[in-house]
């Protein structure tokens, strides 16, 4: 589906976590421990955790995903603190079981779904997507989940439902970043119904073949790969089908900086920096810059959602 040249790296070649961890252990001088077999039990523990996934034609091919280390240690998750390394340090406080997601609003079947039933609703797919943060950095992430449209079909929205709102957990006991924050919580994000129905919009439960690490939005998040990262709400507790465009957290914070749509757009600068290029996370310092693609490279699939819209006005 994506018209990208394959440079030969196939999704199946993504380094499994155990190998990856071993390699890191080796690099950090713990080779002796590995040779002594110390790492073997943890590998098994990881093996237990692996999610059964199927491949997806919506995955990128020919790109090397960002390392698990970087995906889990460079996070914007302000509920755990505003520094990039705060979530990795603080997110262990998050309790992801039991967890229910409340489906509310203009739907025929409002319900509270247990996270484990939600995960079993459809087969889990591996989806390798580009991820572009509004702060002009990017990753490639092998997510695990299924199209959000599958859940939408299940709960049957009423005709007046025009938008979907996602609400994240806001428990200061589990999320220390909430304590001294001028931002009004809980985190709220939203999509237009047709955006939410788009097959690329992923209800996400894992990455690198395993359940989401807490700092990446466990146990369930949304991923909208053609929009800036903050549109992809994490640790979701409520999904609300609504008639009017819902308020969204970053738009509340700075409406001139963060629009409701926030589609990745190299031609529309952020007031504080250009969006023409991005820094590739994990690349060496002099090779970090690369051009940003319209709709983050998903133009062929999503441009038709916005025909006739002035994307500089509706940023």
């Amino acid at each position: 589906m994506l018209k990208r040249k394959s440079s030969g790296v196939q999704p199946t070649e993504i380094t499994p976590r155990s190998v990856y961890l071993n390699r890191r252990a080796f690099m950090t001088g713990a080779a002796a421990a590995a040779i002594a077999g110390v790492l073997a039990p943890s590998e098994e523990a990881y093996a237990d955790n692996r999610l059964t996934t199927v491949k997806s034609p919506l995955s990128l091919t020919g790109v090397q995903p960002t390392s698990l280390q970087d995906i889990t240690h460079y996070n914007n998750f302000y509920e755990f603190g505003t520094n990039k390394d705060d979530p990795a340090r603080e997110a262990y406080r998050l309790k992801t079981r039991p967890w229910t997601v409340s489906i509310e609003g203009k739907v025929q079947k409002p319900q509270k779904i247990d996270i484990d039933s939600l995960m079993k609703l459809r087969p889990l797919e591996e989806r390798i997507y580009r991820f572009r943060c509004v702060e002009a950095w990017s990753m490639v992430i092998p997510w695990v989940g299924y199209s959000f449209s599958e859940l939408i079909k299940e709960v049957q929205p009423l005709p007046e439902a025009k938008f979907v709102q996602f609400i994240s957990l806001d428990d200061p006991n589990q999320m220390p970043g909430l304590r001294f924050s001028p931002i009004s919580w809980p985190y709220s994000e939203g999509l237009r119904m047709d955006e939410a129905m788009h097959p690329l919009t992923l209800l996400t439960f894992g990455l690198y073949g395993e359940p989401l690490p807490n700092q990446d939005g466990a146990p369930v998040r949304i991923v909208v790969p053609w929009k800036y990262g903050f549109k992809s709400a994490k640790s979701i507790v409520k999904i609300k089908f609504v008639e009017k465009q819902p308020h969204t957290t970053w738009n509340d914070q700075g409406p001139n900086e963060y629009g409701f749509y926030s589609n990745v757009n190299p031609n529309k600068d952020h007031p504080r920096w250009s969006q023409k290029t991005e820094r590739v996370i994990g690349a060496s310092i002099f090779k970090q810059r690369q051009p940003t693609l319209m709709f983050n490279g998903y133009e062929d699939q999503v441009a038709n959602l916005y025909t006739g819209m002035d994307l500089k006005k509706y940023y």
């Binding site: 970087d70 240690h73 460079y74 990039k84 996370i281 994990g282 310092i285 970090q288």
Partner: peptide, 8 residues
Amino acid sequence: NSLGPDPT
């Protein structure tokens, strides 16, 4: 090359 995920 050990300045972390985002050396720039």
